[in-house]
Design a protein around this nucleic acid. Sequence first.
RNA 1: UGGCCCGUGGUGUAACGGUAGCACAGCUGGUUUUGGUCCAGUCGGUCGGGGUUCGAAUCCCUGCGGGCCAGCCA
Length: 593
Amino acid sequence: MTATEDAPAHFIRRIIEADNASGKWGGQVRTRFPPEPNGFLHIGHAKSICLNFGLAERYNGSCNLRFDDTNPAKEEQRYVDSITNDVQWLGFDFAGQPRFASDYFETMYDYAVELIRKGKAYVDDQNAEQIRESRGTLKEPGTPSPHRDRSVEENLDLFEKMRTGEFPDGSKVLRAKIDMASPNINLRDPVMYRVLNAHHHRTGDAWHIYPMYDWAHGIEDSIEGITHSICTLEFEDHRPLYDWFIEAINEGRGPGSEWGEPIVHPQQIEFAKLRPTYTVMSKRNLLKLVTDGVVSGWDDPRMPTISGYRRRGYTPESIRNFCDEIGVTKFDAMIDIGRLENAAREHLNKVAPRRMAVLDPIKVTITNWGDGGDEGRTEWLEAVNNPEDPSAGSREVPFTKTLYIERDDFMEDAPRKFFRLKPGGEVRLRYGYWISCHEVVKDDAGNIVELRCTYDPQTKGGDSPPPDAEGNVRKVKGTLHWVSADHAVKVEVRQFDRLFWVEKPDRKPKDAGDDWTFFENLNRDSLQVLDACYLEPNWKPGESEAGFADGITRVQFERQGYFCLDDDSTGDRLVFNRTVSLKDSWAKQAGKG
RNA sequence: UGGCCCGUGGUGUAACGGUAGCACAGCUGGUUUUGGUCCAGUCGGUCGGGGUUCGAAUCCCUGCGGGCCAGCCA
C-alpha cells in the first residue's frame, strides 16, 4: 500500500485533486465500472476496475458496479453473475448490489421525450443502410434525413408507438438533431433509440425500444451522481456527444422551469486500455479460442480472463499490484506480460508454503543406507515451510533408501558450471543428506533408469559435515529437491506456456493472404500435462499455511515454481496448475549455449 | 489538405518553465540448504527541424511516426 500511496499522481488523480481543491464536486468522488454483460472479464477490465475502485478508495468516495445492459440481443444473466463474482474476487466492494442501466430506462425515455419537445430529437423512418449512406464519410459531410423536420407532435406520437411495439425491428429510430456536417461523425444526428422487439434478461418484454450507448451512458452516470466518468481512449470522439446530451437536457432547466432542475453533468475522462504482449484481448478473438477448442473454456488457465488467471493460481493481490505498477496515461502502450508474471512471483514468494515435488522423476538408490541403521528405516527430517515467513513453521519429510530426484538435476557429461548431480559429484538433498553418485544404470535403449549413490550420515538435515583434521569443511555447490519413493504421492501437473509465439498475435503481417487469421501465431504446445509427478506426503489440500482467503490452495514446489490445486482434482488424484515458474538463471545461461 | 488524441532509456512511467528520476528487464558482483529470495553496482532516454525564453521534455509552429472514428455494438 505504501508504494502506491507514494507513487506520483497520474493525470486522472491530478484532475480529481484539482476538482477537490476548487470544490467543483464538494470534495466528492464517485466513479463506476460499467461493463456490458455480454462476455467474461479479462485482465484489461482489471485495469479499469482497479482504477475506478482504487480512486474511490483513495479519495474516500464510492464506486458503483453498473451493468450497461442496453442491448438485450447480446446480454445474458450468466455474464452478470460471472462479472460480479470476478469484481468481488479482486477484492472490491460496490456498496450493496450492482446497478443496472435497465433500471433507468423509464427516466431515459422521459428525457428523450423532453428532447423531442425541445426540438432536439426526431423519429427517422430510414433503414440502417439509408442512414449509413446519408451519414457521409470521414471527409465528406452527411445529408439530412427527409424526416428531420417532422413536427414535435408527430415525433411524440411515433416515439410512443415505437415504445409500445407497433413497429418491426429496425423500421424506425429516434435520432438527435445535431449537425449532419460535423467533422465529428458522432455528432451527425446519432441514433438514440432503435426498435428491438427482444426479450431483455431483466426487463423482460416491457420494452420494444432500447437506448444506444451514447445516449444511455451519460444519463446512467448522471442518475448515479458520478463525478468522474472514466473510459478508454476510443471514446474520446464521443465526449462531445456525451456533453451535448446532458447540456440538451439541462437547457432551459433551473428554478421554476417546466423541465425541472438541471441534472448532474459528470466529466468523461479517457485513458489508454491495457494491451499486454503475447495475447489477444478482444471478446471476438477470445471467443474464437473457446469455440474452436484451442482452450478448454473461458477459465482455461492460459486465457487472459480474470477467471483464467484465478484458475491459474494468480492471487487478487498480484493482479492489483500489477495494475498499480503499470500506470495510467493516454499513451497507447504495450505492457510486457512478464510484468504480470513478476507480480505473481513477488506476492507468492511471500505467502506460498513450500513443498517438494519431483515432476520428471529419476530413481535414486542410496546404496549405503544400511550404514546408518536398518536399511528399511524411514528418517523424518525437518523442513522449513516458508523461509520468507518464519511464522509458517516447519514440517517433517521422510527420507528412505529409494528416492526420486528431477531428471534435469543429473547430467552424465556435465559442463563446468553445472553444479547439480553428476557421476562422482556430490550434492545436497535439501533438508536431507549429501549424496554422491557412483553408478549410472541404463536400460537397453540407453535411457538412465536409476542412479546409485552413497550418502554421508554426517550431513543429516543437509548440514555441512564437521571439519577435517586441518579444519577444512567440505562444500557442495548444488542443492536438489527430492521425495521418498516409498511415501510420495503421485499427482498430475499441468504446465502452461503462452498461447502465442509473437508479441502481437492479432497483428496481420503485411504479406499475409486474405485467409490469414491470428491462429497462425498460435503456440500449439502451450499445455504440457505431466501425469506421473511425485509430491512429498505432507499435503493437506485447503490447509496450506497461508490460508488464502479465496479458498484456493497455492504452493511453491521448491526450485520450480508456484502451483495451485485445480478443481479437476479428485480424492485420489490431485491436479496442480503451474501458476508461474521461479526465475531460472541456470536455464538462461544454459540457453546461451 | 476530414476530425480528435498520443510520442521521454529495451519496456512502462515521473519531472507540469529551473539538476531528466523511478520501476521492470539486461549485465557485474555479494549473501544463500531453492541457480529462488535478498543486497550492491552498472548499462541506457526527451521523434526531427525551427521559434519564444536567462533557461524548454515541458510553451508555440512545422514535419515525421503511432492510435481512434463512417454499428440501429459498447
